[in-house]
Design a protein around this nucleic acid. Structure first.
Lengths: 212, 212, 212, 212
DNA sequence: TATGAATGAGTATTCATTCAT
DNA sequence: TATGAATGAATACTCATTCAT
């Protein structure tokens, strides 16, 4: 970011305060219904200061989204064991995603934003592509090994990601209520079955096996 | 609806013109970005007339949503054979939903609306409940027959509905590209496998069996 | 103007009210210092109505300027006798301009606006060109008759127009104080001498001559 | 100026940097459209520093204007030969002004500023008065000698100064294009003719005569 | 029914200026 | 001197909704 302002330590702190306040308010009231003045009031600073740290309201939103996405990618990457079979890796990624989304509910609630704005839509789209590509690649690998039916790998990638976000969203909304560990495992099972048509190996065994 | 205004024949036509124009514009630009004056301009009437037919902008939106939902329910109901086993019925409902959503893409694109607005959220939620209840009931039935793993039926209902909408959305966005019949069948397979952990019976056999 | 709104008679009246109020306020406080809300308040209408009649603040200004310019052109054209010699015609145009500007001081005070804005600058420039061309042509004609020294006609055109606006501006500002008739004649004399290097024929004689 | 801050050598340098940057930007974008932060950025200093050197934005502008005006006065004074006749002296002053303005175009472009602001108007007016007084005095002298028609000397002073600035402005804008020497002489001729109604003595002869 | 006019609350953004360090 | 941070007043423009005719 060549045009990013350099901030002092104190400045970075203020910026964080604004981001935190914004996240909170966006979550509670939604993006559109949150005024910049609200954010500043919540952060305890004057309205003008907002523009010292962010050029526009949208840019703050984008920063929030990018931060979160990066963390999600890290969580997914950390969960996927390099030497596991592709279906297992997909499962691991899916479970990690569900866990991450649950832990960061407020962040993800953010994304239920009207996609009208082109700039906004771009921000929201840009990041999912990396994960989508990974999943597609793993699906193809699994198909080569006869683990997943032959069909457009994109289809299965959409299925996996759609499942993760549907379940997470439902959990967030209270439509399914259960401990997060249970949810993650159920989603993992769901995805595995949907991909392979076979009941997955029970989690305990899996754990033992993959560590052995 | 007792409070619904009675309109002359010409009036109903005007109303339809407004609905059609709105559907088009909402789809193209989103709900928030479509002004009432745009709708009226597109329909070729003066702005004031809008309020003769709809009390608010939201109410027009609600009417659009309800109309569509009713039709979807009908399509689902028509597709689910009363005497089929519960998993098959779920599958039939899912396939019908995918088909319906594909045929009425614009309607469904509408639903990608900021969910923040409470009134809006209500409109959007109210309708999915009927189908959700049905699916939940069918899941429970299937679980009783040992076809689906034991877990909160709500979880599976969410899974089914999430799959339908994820795939439909991806199809709408061009992220999966295939003939609608193929898509519907793949989704049916996906849902069946996810629920039962078993590869579904090939479509041709199914067709023969269920008709026989 | 294809995109011009059609207004009812009452609408046109309102528009005029806004224009009048704006002219008044622009004159008193300047363009930049006049808020749209001031204009509306002065016209006794709600702020939003402004935008029913004008797309922007600038556009109202442009309309004001164009109106005035058209009138000035008419005054100039009416004053220049077709069969008079070129220098006389220039003089007649200059005198008419001075008179017109004096009568419409408020209008012309408007033009002392910061030229920063490109759009604004265009509006201000576009109109003077017609008159400039006319004057240039008359100068060339006069040069052909040996009445004006040989040099770039543009130079003399600038001189004439500059004189008119300098004297008018000074008069407006109170730096020269005299009856408008006297001012107009003095300017006419000034311009004539500057062009020809000859003392002009006294006004009374001129009148008689040109009519005879 | 008793209230002028004393600056170190480095301080004076900084101040000059700011003045130079401001002059440049004012010329390019106009006074209103130039932000203090722009000036500081162009000068490569932090925004806060501006106020170490200037109490307000306006004061910087005033300083710029005064500097220029002083130099102009000097140029005019140097050009006007004490023993020449009044019309010649006016002519000499006018020619010197044209030359000076051409050499310092950016400075003078500055003056096309919205005159609305009272404080600004004062700054702009205050200085022209000295020259105006001088010209007025010379005109009166010339009238006493029968060289210039009898009329309010202020009128002729306005005429002279208006001519200088109109031609300079037109030259700046590219509306008259010629070498500066030629322009200066033409303006001198124009003014002389306008004042006296007589073709001026050719320049070469004049030069010889006045020096003799 | 239908129109054009009218309303007015609501909000992102700018920028000169001040301040703490 | 010099910096980055902080302030807050000021304002054009939008748009759902209402109204007179």
């Amino acid at each position: 970011m060549s045009d990013a302002r350099r901030h002092t330590e104190q400045g970075e702190e203020r910026k964080q305060q604004l981001l935190t306040a914004a996240e909170q308010l966006f979550t509670e009231r939604g993006y559109g219904a949150t005024r910049i003045s609200d954010i500043c009031a919540a952060a305890g600073v004057a309205k003008g200061l907002f523009y010292w740290y962010f050029p526009t309201k949208e840019s703050l939103f984008a920063e929030l989204v990018r931060t979160m996405r990066l963390a999600l990618r890290r969580a997914q990457a950390a969960a996927m064991q390099p030497d596991a079979d592709p279906v297992t890796r997909i499962r691991q990624g899916a479970e990690a995603s569900v866990r991450f989304m649950a832990e960061h509910q407020p962040y993800f609630a953010l994304l239920d934003v009207e996609r009208t704005d082109d700039a906004m839509a771009d921000v929201l789209k840009e990041g999912s592509d990396v994960y989508a590509r990974d999943v597609r690649r793993l699906v193809a690998e699994a198909q080569a090994q006869g683990l997943v039916p032959d069909a457009d790998p994109s289809f299965y990638a959409v299925g996996v990601m759609g499942a993760v976000s549907s379940f997470s969203h439902a959990h967030r909304m209270g439509r399914v209520q259960m401990p997060i560990d249970e949810l993650a495992q159920l989603v993992g099972d769901w995805v595995t079955r949907a991909l392979t048509g076979r009941a997955p190996i029970p989690a305990t065994d899996r754990g033992a096996a993959s560590l052995g």
